[in-house]
Design a protein around this nucleic acid. Structure first.
Length: 628
DNA sequence: ATAGGGTTAG
């Protein structure tokens, strides 16, 4: 049956039987390469003085399990050969397994090749052994051999190989394996389905992940956890929260990994009240807050706007690793507190035991650029190398952002020209953003061209370029770009904005009419428009992202998600109360001045989070200055 | 005997 499916069209099914060389063990694995050490006594399996007492299989198995290094395994291995216990598949498989757990994959393979009888477990262990050492090529090779042989697929091997596809981000092979498994007629259990859902999600195929999850007859904790994480990663953290509730309603009690996942989703959602509820729940359930959960909580509180709670969490942790420190440094950065970030960095390196890593520096540089600390940013950038961290494209992106926002476009451009590393779309995106702020059309055009070249499938870049032309009055060029976009079948993907009101989170997208209070929302927006006009607000067309589809407007305001969210906030919460908004796109130009004016005419304090930066608008000004 | 999920940046 499997044979029929084996198309000739994908290299995955190539018939090459040549063995792929595995990488030999690294130098720090200071074990003997040979499995066949001389027959000696072993503390876990002492030679019996009484010959009549024979050892049985269980003695071997338990002895193997106590081995801490390859040389110990080798001794037992040798004994098993001499005493004929290697014929016992449970013993041989256990040896294979322990070798692979100890990453002595060469020893495992030697044994595997010498086994005259192998069962599905032997094969499965080999697939897993290669996967464990990240040798995906050989892992896939062994898996192909299973398919080619008369062996059946099983629920133990499939999760491993699907995980390999996930690591390689190879959804084509992943999907192929999924199909083969279905065709084989076997029942896919929770392990396989969880691995599949995770693989689809991590490969960006969220629809496939959802479909599979919905169709599953039974879901266990891991499946739920995977799906909750998948929603958070694909820009739907509100759905993560719903799933978490559903899971608990079905009587499934979360474990540490599940809790970390939902904390992470909540961080993305940016909902302050949910962060409080979740932390209370964690305390109530007496979950042990170790380094991982603690760090996730720091991040959650910071991204939900509660910097004090983040710091409190940080201070209360017994153990902290680089990630915890970086998370706290980043937290100050989100809130524009560059001085605090720099101070914490000094404490961290002052101790000397935890060397900062590349992410620590990204967090620091980001803190500097958010706060407009140009001088300090340049200093940190120089300091990196002293800590043995080589600037990568992310660090350069921060620097471009830092210089660009400050209006030092020529310097930024010079840095781009002289840098020796590969430039990616975020770097050009940062530069483009700066060009637009400072209205340098020529440089912006150049950056947009690079973006189009790098990511021809990203509709956002076409829209950006067409806007640049539109603002320069080059209408023919505008038409060209839009035609190109249509030809390539690209559509603008909607951005989302969330707003908290009365302990609930509401999501809006552009032109959204799905909210039950749509009518009131649109009325409020019309009302707001009038007040804004009176106050002298003029939308800055330099920044309006013209929709490719016809732009819907109420008065002079476009119906972008953040405007609908704000209008909803105005009617759903009492006058004078604070409004919290989370946007999944960067707040720029027109949006920035819109919020400034809105805070003035509505007498509301508006806190906007975008791309993990907080902007606090109050009485017509922004606490973060004009560094957006 | 062999299997799936969790922390910091952008």
């Amino acid at each position: 049956m499997l044979r029929n499916l084996r198309g000739r069209f994908h290299p995955f099914w190539s018939n090459a039987t040549t063995k792929v060389r595995y990488s030999t063990c690294s130098a720090d694995d200071s074990h003997e390469q040979s499995s066949y050490v001389p027959l000696t006594d072993h503390p876990n399996l002492p030679e019996s003085p009484n010959v009549s007492v024979s050892r049985d299989t269980r003695d071997y198995i338990s002895a193997i399990l106590t081995c801490k290094n390859v040389s110990e395994v080798g001794k037992i291995h040798a004994r098993a050969i001499v005493n004929g216990f290697l014929q016992d598949l449970t013993v041989a498989n256990k040896l294979l397994y322990i070798y692979s757990q100890l990453r002595a994959i060469a020893d495992a393979e030697t044994l595997f090749d010498e086994m005259s009888v192998k069962d599905p477990v032997s094969w499965s262990v080999m697939v897993g052994g290669f996967a464990k050492t990240n040798d995906f090529v050989n892992s896939l090779r062994v898996f192909r051999e299973i398919l080619r042989s008369s062996l059946n697929l099983d629920n133990y091997t499939l999760p491993i190989i699907i995980r390999v596809c996930r690591e390689k981000r190879d959804v084509v092979v992943g999907r192929l394996i999924h199909k083969v498994a279905l065709k084989s007629g076997m029942d896919l259990d929770c392990y396989v389905c969880a691995a599949l859902v995770d693989m689809y999600a991590k490969c960006g195929e969220i629809d496939d992940a959802c479909k599979l999850f919905d169709e599953m007859p039974k879901r266990d904790l891991v499946t739920w956890t995977v799906m909750i994480g998948a929603c958070a990663d694909s820009g739907k953290p509100d759905e993560s929260w719903v799933l978490f509730e559903r899971m608990r309603n079905e009587g499934i009690v979360p474990d540490r990994a599940a809790v970390v996942t939902i904390v992470n989703a909540c961080a993305k959602l940016g909902a302050l009240h949910k962060a409080v509820i979740l932390h209370d729940y964690i305390r109530l359930m007496n979950f042990p807050v170790g380094v991982v959960l603690g760090t996730a909580l720091i991040d959650m509180h910071a991204k939900c706007g509660n910097l004090d709670a983040a710091r409190e969490m940080f201070d209360s942790m017994k153990d902290r690793n680089v990630i915890s420190w970086s998370a706290m440094i980043a937290a100050y950065g989100y809130h524009g507190k560059a001085t605090k970030a720099l101070e914490l960095f000094d404490v961290m390196v002052g101790d000397g035991r935890l060397p900062p890593n590349e992410i620590t520096f990204v967090s620091l540089l980001n803190a500097c650029s958010h706060a407009g600390f140009v001088k300090e940013g340049l200093e940190i950038f120089d300091l990196m190398t002293k800590y043995g961290v080589r600037p990568n494209v992310k660090h350069y992106t921060c620097m471009i952002d830092l210089l660009g926002r400050a209006g030092r476009l020529t310097e930024a451009s010079g840095m781009i020209e002289t840098m020796s590393i590969q430039k990616d779309e975020t770097l050009w995106g940062s530069f483009l953003g700066a060009c637009r702020i400072h209205k340098n059309v020529e440089m912006a055009e150049k950056a947009a061209m690079f973006l189009l070249e790098l990511q021809p499938q990203n509709p956002g870049h076409y829209i950006l370029l067409s806007n640049i032309y539109a603002n320069d009055g080059k209408w023919e060029e505008v038409a060209k770009v839009r035609n190109l976009m249509n030809q390539r079948g690209l559509k603008k993907v909607p951005g989302y904005t969330w707003i908290e009101a009365n302990n609930r989170t509401h999501r809006f997208k552009v032109g959204d009419r799905t909210h039950p209070k749509s009518k009131e929302i649109y009325d409020a927006l019309r009302d707001l428009t009038e007040k804004l006009e009176e106050a002298g607000f003029v939308p800055d067309t330099n920044f309006v992202l013209h929709d490719v589809d016809e732009e819907v407007k109420v008065g002079m305001l476009s119906l972008h998600s953040e405007k609908l969210a704000l209008a909803f906030g105005l009617i759903a919460t009492p006058e004078g109360s604070l409004l919290r908004i989370t946007k999944n796109l960067r707040v720029c130009g027109d949006c920035h001045s819109f919020f400034k004016f809105a805070s003035l005419v509505t007498k509301r304090e508006i806190i906007v989070r975008d791309a993990n930066r907080f902007h606090c608008f109050k009485e017509g000004s922004c606490s973060c200055g004009d560094y957006w």
